[in-house]
Design a protein around this nucleic acid. Structure first.
Lengths: 238, 238
DNA sequence: TCAAAAGTGTTGACTTTACACCCATGA
DNA sequence: TCATGGGTGTAAAGTCAACACTTTTGA
């Protein structure tokens, strides 16, 4: 059609986009932990009057010069003091009415941390671990975000050893099995579970055994180095 | 710690967030099609001087009052004239340097459309179908986005019948198998493929047969109604 | 009658599940 | 010596992969 196509330049685009500059971007982190055979999530009491007495996920606005992952890491670091954490992007939520103070699009990440070995600075009692099972209602659309992240975690459990990040560095196969059972909400057969795990070759036998258990101690394992942290995303070359 | 927590209200938040209002949001659609036993993607010649002579995905900025899915549908509608399209969010890309004109975070969707039965209004020759196989380089980080969407599509192929949206309403099992082969890049055994598909119970036998084929015509099938469009996401109640 | 694809079952290999006993340790 | 979980193998069921011939249609 007769329309002329004039090439834009970065500079001209910058100007024409001003009309769109009233959307805010945040990240929300579904921080999973595991303790007492129970999958937990770290929540904070909402500081929004609209959601008084409800908990919410941990999140923050993304800074103009900050990558999305960096923002998530910052939230984790600020809230838990941890920086060696498994983190994965799950989904972006952007309904126009999801936030009472205006248009806020949020990119949801889940992360997996070991509650016990990193005693995190729960710097005030409004920040606490909650059993995932017991959570009925959260501020904003955070219950939906939690549910979707939990689904993602469940999908990943059998395909990748990421869930080991919920356990201490060294763990027994029993602990790992209990973790799987907590995430999936099913009971697993011990022999079959061990067989399956050993076939995957995710773990190394570190030649140590449990201590302080009131029964025969089990062998301890560690996640192989190459499975730690995120599977690298394909790098981008142009 | 001694810090006082004052409840925010929507109104006070709105003001304090002004500092963040210089990030733009876009959606990019990886529009897959299928023709001549080849998986294709709809690309447009980039109108950015920085990417002269490169193609890019179809996308647009999200309007302040527009849901993310709505923005993707709008892009599809504007570019293809279609509005009954399968659409799925894949991932969000937000590296600070991914766009030459400033901070643009993009939410990538893939969509599946049937090239033949909806002759789309390719309103100028800068908008064209390209074989996915032959694409080496695209504008921005669009090659990365394409690769990740293609991976997602490949994952979905065996778990869900969404790929049928790439075929006409009525199709033969041969056509479906060829589509699977094109997406996965492998050859499949005809008997095993048919067995597997019939076990899934995704299709209904509509009691029609192919016409205009120079050989014995095959039976035609249709995707069962409940598998059309997106699997509904869990609704959110608070 | 030829060319082309439709339609259809069986076998062996492999994977998954169900299941039970003896062992090592701490209390 | 008891209670607790550690550690291990096998058989049956189910799933997956490989493979070939007859049928139907149009040209």
């Amino acid at each position: 059609m007769g329309k002329e196509y004039i090439l834009k330049t970065a500079a001209s685009e910058k100007i024409s986009r001003l009309a769109y500059f009233n959307i805010a971007i945040s990240v929300d982190c579904v921080i999973f932990g595991y303790e007492g055979k129970d999958l937990k999530v770290l929540l904070i009491k909402s500081d929004f009057k609209e959601f008084e007495n409800l908990n919410s996920l941990l999140g923050d606005l993304v800074k103009p010069q900050e990558d999305l992952e960096a923002a998530s890491y910052r939230v984790l670091k600020e809230r838990t003091g941890l920086d060696d954490v498994y983190l994965e992007q799950v989904q972006t939520f952007g309904n126009i009415s999801r936030h009472p103070s205006g248009r806020v699009i949020t990119i949801a990440y889940y992360s997996l941390i070991d509650i016990k070995s990193h005693k995190l600075k729960l710097n005030h009692n409004e920040l606490q671990w909650h059993s995932v099972k017991g959570i009925k209602k959260l501020a904003f659309d955070h219950k939906l975000i939690l549910d979707i992240c939990l689904n993602r975690l469940r999908q990943q459990v059998m395909e990748s050893p990421v869930v080991c990040h919920l356990l201490p560095e060294k763990f027994s196969l029993r602990e790992l099995q209990e973790l799987y059972e907590a995430i999936l909400g099913v009971e697993l057969d011990r022999r079959n579970f061990r067989k399956k795990i050993s076939l995957k070759e995710w773990l190394i036998d570190i030649n140590e055994i449990e201590t302080d258990v009131p029964h025969r101690p089990g062998k301890l394992f560690s996640l192989k180095q190459n499975f730690k942290r995120k599977i690298p995303i394909p790098t981008y070359k142009n």
